[in-house]
């Protein structure tokens, strides 16, 4: 039995990079980015995520936004592995400026310098900024 997703032509896989630079909740960017990431992953694309500047706060452990009337979408980052989205990169310098270490994050990430992130960016077919 053939399913819709199996009918997709092989070889149509592109490298998508999502660059997240905004803190969660204050603006809608973080949540919107996550939705697009989930959709592109459902179409079997090669997805990588970068968290830089205030975007590193999206991955902070212990978020509890009920008191401000928002959904706790930080839990959804932990579902990404199940969507085969496993390339998560974080800008080391942004973490340090904000007093964060890898232990403060709710998923496993790779810490990179801005230079290394720039090189990764050059390898992409599509770069989307949020």
């Amino acid at each position: 039995m053939s399913e819709p997703w199996e009918d997709e032509e092989e070889g149509a896989i592109k490298k998508f990079m999502f660059i997240n630079r905004k803190a969660p909740y204050g603006t809608i960017y973080a949540l919107e980015s996550l939705e697009v990431v989930l959709i592109s992953a459902a179409f079997d694309q090669d997805v990588s995520l970068v968290f830089s500047d205030d975007g590193v706060f999206q991955l902070k452990k212990d978020q509890d936004p009920e008191s401000i009337g928002m959904k706790n979408f930080s839990r959804t980052y932990r579902a990404l592995e199940g969507y085969d989205v496993e390339k998560l990169y974080v800008d080391k310098e942004s973490m340090e400026e904000r007093g964060l270490t890898e232990d403060d994050l709710l998923v496993d990430v790779e810490m990179l310098s801005k230079e290394e992130l720039g090189n990764l960016m050059n390898e992409q077919d599509v770069v989307l900024s949020f």
């Binding site: 803190a23 909740y25 902070k60 212990d62 978020q63 509890d64 009920e66 008191s67 401000i68």
Partner: peptide, 10 residues
């Protein structure tokens, strides 16, 4: 405070 808690800040 509620904005700290929302963002997981101690």
């Amino acid at each position: 405070g509620p904005d700290l808690a929302a963002r997981g800040m101690d």
